[in-house]
Write a protein that binds this DNA or RNA. Structure first.
Lengths: 145, 145
DNA sequence: CAAATATAGTTAGTAAAACAACTATATTTA
DNA sequence: TAAATATAGTTGTTTTACTAACTATATTTG
């Protein structure tokens, strides 16, 4: 089965490219003197877009698991970019809110993040984007539980 | 600039899908009772295909950095799947070789790994694969240093 | 209502990624 | 040849991923 060998390569390409994208963003973040990581950015960006959320909601939106989210939240709290507020009706839960400092940071960084993201997409078209999304979603769904 | 917002999504999709692919393979490895990780597999598969290599060559082939390779090699050595042999002409370097046990493991696992890899590709075509590869390579190159 | 179950979040362990700083050895060049 | 530079690999630190096991609180059900 020659096909198997060939399609086995997609996972390598996928992993390699995903790591490069993250590495590139991480490096630019560093160069710009930002003290947050790319994954931390994803969280505060969600809070900026959607407003206050609990940890479960943040985990679902960013496709991270709960322990990972706990730790990212811990780090963002230490940096005083977000705040854990007790949930008024559910004592198991926290409401996560951006601080003023966190909101300022998102506003300041947003244009630069967009240009970092655009960089990867140079020389690619609108229809490439659609194809790419379709194929990624298909892979994702094929492996869903 | 509406485009920036939209293309910012590709990195999320990419990261999410790459993680799912790795997670799926990891879970299948577990279910099959295999004691190696997906990244460890990538290393012993290279050795199986290409024969003895040094750590630098393995790092380049798998697109991992040297510290990461050192640690994967350490783990595979502990499991006695590979062997670090001194390089006859360069005392800084090691030659990494599969043990018999390592070679047996690759032979035993290969068909199942291929079927794990094929699973992701269900409902996708030959030309999808070409498009996918082209776009991933383009992103990778756009972000190269 | 009490017991069983589900949910929100945390902690612990292992693996991996990225970076910096390091040791040891080779190679280049002044 | 001695000094400078390059290369192979290691170690330490931080962050993230995933799993399992855990605490505390809510909800369901018998």
């Amino acid at each position: 089965m020659q096909e198997a060998l060939k399609y086995s390569r997609y996972s390598f390409l996928l992993d390699r490219t995903a790591r490069r994208v993250k590495q590139y963003a991480k490096q630019r973040f560093r160069e710009l003197g930002w003290t947050i990581t790319v994954d931390q950015w994803a969280v505060i960006k969600q809070l900026y877009d959607k407003g206050e959320l609990n940890q479960r909601e943040l985990a679902e939106l960013t496709f991270k698991d709960h322990p990972t989210m706990t730790r990212i939240i811990d780090l963002l709290s230490t940096k005083e970019l977000i705040l854990r507020k007790p949930h008024p009706e559910d004592r198991r839960s926290f409401i996560i809110a951006l601080t003023n400092k966190g909101e300022e940071l998102v506003k300041d960084c947003l244009p630069e993040v967009q240009s970092i993201r655009m960089k990867a997409w140079e020389n690619l078209s609108e229809s490439d984007f659609k194809e790419f999304k379709r194929i990624l979603d298909s892979i994702y769904d094929n492996l869903s539980l």
